[in-house]
């Protein structure tokens, strides 16, 4: 026995820690807090003691941060802090509503495709294939160009563009669940389709779709930013982060803060949604991979 358990080998066993499970870390909570902060600011923007985001102070154009303008002013002398906060409103309104609409429609399509298969599936997947045959931004630009530029239209366009991705995720999740024992059992007990879809399938695909929703919010905020940056999203003078960055571009050399402040706000918000979405995906992923 002594020969088998020499001191060296015992030590080597003690040194080796068990592999740890992943949990939600500090980064997750920081990211969630940032999202909460941005959402709160956007909701209560009207109640906050902010400057008028539209008021131009022609004598204080491109002013650096000061007591009067905490984040300075833009090329027209408008208060950047107020515009960033009201811009958050536009970004979040589009960034949340478009994925929400797409998730509702896509989940329905995906669930029905995955559950009933057959012609409906062929039709739904064929339709999404056609949408996916276009480079997404080009399709978005074209639709907005014809439909006209307004917040509602941007939401509509981005929702349509997002439906295919959600449909695929929901369908794949449904296919995976469909053959599991509890579904077969429910079917054997004579449960109707509607009941199975609502009571057995939906609850099981909601978690992964929820995590995916957050990632879609991040993507949508970026695309909204692109559209507004190109002058085809939120119509000016209504503040939006993309629009503010586009306006700040002309003063980049003399007053870089005009472009960089909304850029930082946007980057942090997109990053936060990605981080939270990715953490939730990692803990809801049954495979719990290495990354």
């Amino acid at each position: 026995m002594a020969a088998l358990d020499s001191a060296g080998k015992l030590a080597l066993e003690l040194e080796m820690p068990a592999r740890r499970r992943r949990r939600l870390g500090i980064v997750f909570w920081l990211a969630s807090s940032w999202i909460a902060l941005v959402v709160a600011l956007a909701i209560f923007a009207d109640l906050l003691p902010l400057a008028d985001p539209f008021a131009q102070a022609l004598l204080a154009r491109r002013a650096p941060p000061s007591a009067a303008h905490l984040l300075g002013t833009d090329a027209l002398g408008r208060d950047i802090l107020a515009r960033v906060i009201f811009g958050a409103r536009a970004s979040l309104e589009i960034g949340l509503l478009a994925p929400l609409a797409a998730t509702l429609v896509g989940t329905l399509l995906g669930m029905l495709s995955g559950y009933f298969r057959g012609r409906f599936e062929t039709f739904a997947i064929g339709t999404t294939d056609v949408l996916l045959a276009f480079p997404p931004l080009v399709l978005a630009l074209a639709i907005v160009a014809y439909l006209g530029q307004s917040v509602t239209n941007v939401i509509l366009v981005l929702a349509i563009l997002t439906v295919p991705a959600v449909t695929r995720v929901a369908r794949a999740a449904t296919l995976a669940i469909r053959e599991r024992e509890f579904v077969t059992a429910a079917r054997a007990l004579g449960a109707g389709h509607l009941r199975i879809l609502r009571r057995e399938i939906l609850p099981n695909i909601m978690l992964p779709l929820g995590a995916y929703f957050l990632v879609l919010v991040a993507v949508t905020v970026v695309v909204e930013g692109i559209l507004s940056f190109l002058g085809l999203g939120v119509p000016p003078p209504q503040p939006s982060w993309g629009g503010m960055i586009a306006e700040g571009r002309d003063s980049l050399d003399i007053a870089p803060h005009i472009a960089f402040i909304p850029a930082v706000a946007m980057f942090l918000t997109v990053l936060a949604f990605n981080l939270v979405g990715d953490s939730l995906r990692a803990i809801t992923d049954p495979r719990r991979g290495a990354s």
């Binding site: 991040a218 930013g225 692109i226 940056f229 993309g242 960055i245 571009r249 472009a259 946007m266 990053l271």
Partner: peptide, 22 residues
């Protein structure tokens, strides 16, 4: 890499212009 995926393209373009051109 994860952080880079959250950078909108126009933002990166402007950052590069600011640093390397301006």
């Amino acid at each position: 890499a994860f952080g880079s995926l959250s950078v909108p393209p126009f933002m990166l373009a402007i950052l590069l212009i600011f640093v390397f051109a301006l």
